[in-house]
Computed example of a mutant assay.
Amino acid sequence: MSDARDRPDPDPNEERQPGEENRYSSEYPGVAPLPPESSAPLGGGGWPDLGSFQPGVIPLRPLGLGDILGGALATLRSHAAMLFGAAFVVVGIGQLLALALVWPRIQELTATAGTGEATDEQLAGLMLDNLAVNGVSLGFMMLAQLFVTGLATIVVGKAVLGRTVGFAEAWEDLRPRLIPLLGVTFLVGVIVFAGAMLFLIPGIWAAIVLALAAPALVLERSSVLHAMRRSWDLVLNSWWRIFGIMALVVVITVVINLVVTLPFGIMAGGSVDPASTTTNEQIILTTVGEVLAASVAYPFAVTVTALVYIDRRIRTEGLALELARAAGMAPPDAGPPGSPHAW
């Protein structure tokens, strides 16, 4: 699906006067100009036809939904050990730290409620304390998710070029991006939360408009505010399409969570809420189920989001030629790179 800002495909048979090679560059600032006639062997005269080229997990053309989901699954398959393994480790650590904080409160609440001797005020106080501790545990989980977001985004950036990346190399790329990534995640979260307080719809709108800020920050190595502006520019004129994709991702991740956690909930006596369990074994079982579910759902959601970002740049900035050049499929003199450059 295209929109009003999508770049038109030049006619390869169109006659151009001398000096007109950069006409499309002047009409679309920041976009790679047309290559000269003599340096376009991939598609004849004019703009190379890259639609049939696929150096990595996606073809070099505007992506359909099947391309995006297929590219995400291909990326996860080729980097399964690193992405799922890293997610399992960091999410597991986050859950262990959270559980260490929540455990005493859960035990106290369960014991007090079980005796039937606590007053309503005491139970309300325990519940408020439990909510506060759960807020801290949620912070640990957000940090874990932040790491997975950065790591998976870097992997996708390499995978579209047909390259594999090891953990050490990905970590070297990610490490200087962690603090800015934390900043963009915090600001986007605050904006979305504030919008959600205004009858929910503004929060949903803001969540979609800023959905591509994280991949823009990681892959373009930009600042926090610039990444948010980039997301705004890339999303705004294709809001409904991206909303549909993101809504589908939410549905898929919910299904993943249900499928993975359900067996553990059954083993724990039918409960998937640690605060309502009555034995330590139930708490442990439900926690393991949550870690496994998050280890699968987080990488999937991030890879799809990164591919949506790449699709938007292909549609609006002519990124396909730049990716082809980076993958060695286009001649180096096929026009200078657009701005911002590919990773």
Rank of each mutant, 00 (worst) to 15 (best):
V102S: 00
N237C: 07
P35Q: 10
V165Y: 06
A100Q: 01
L217T: 12
P12F: 09
R23Y: 04
E117Q: 05
L96P: 03
P41D: 09
A342T: 12
V90D: 03
V272I: 15
G318S: 14
A152S: 15
G162K: 07
G150D: 04
Y28F: 10
I256M: 07
H226E: 11
V192F: 00
E172N: 14
P41Q: 09
L50T: 11
L321W: 07
M142R: 00
L143V: 14
D273Y: 07
L131V: 06
T286R: 08
F243T: 06
A326T: 14
G338P: 04
A86P: 03
A301E: 03
A72R: 05
G244P: 14
L34K: 13
A124H: 10
A124T: 14
S231K: 05
W240T: 15
S271C: 01
L198A: 08
G94A: 04
V89R: 05
R312H: 09
G92F: 02
M142A: 03
V155K: 01
D6T: 10
L42V: 06
S52Y: 06
S38C: 06
V255Q: 05
A170N: 05
A327D: 13
A297S: 15
A168K: 08
S222T: 07
Q122A: 10
N257A: 10
T164N: 08
L319D: 13
T278R: 06
I179V: 10
G44N: 05
V156N: 08
L285Q: 10
A86E: 11
A342M: 12
L178I: 14
W47E: 15
S295N: 14
A74V: 06
G289P: 07
V57D: 07
P62M: 07
V304N: 11
P104F: 05
A113R: 15
L292R: 07
L96K: 01
A301T: 08
Q122P: 04
A144G: 04
Q282K: 03
R221Q: 13
A330N: 11
W103F: 04
R5A: 13
G56H: 09
P104W: 01
L210H: 03
A247T: 14
D233T: 08
A152M: 06
L258H: 13
A144V: 00
T261Y: 12
G139N: 06
T303G: 06
P180Q: 12
W205R: 02
G94P: 00
G328I: 05
L73A: 14
A152E: 13
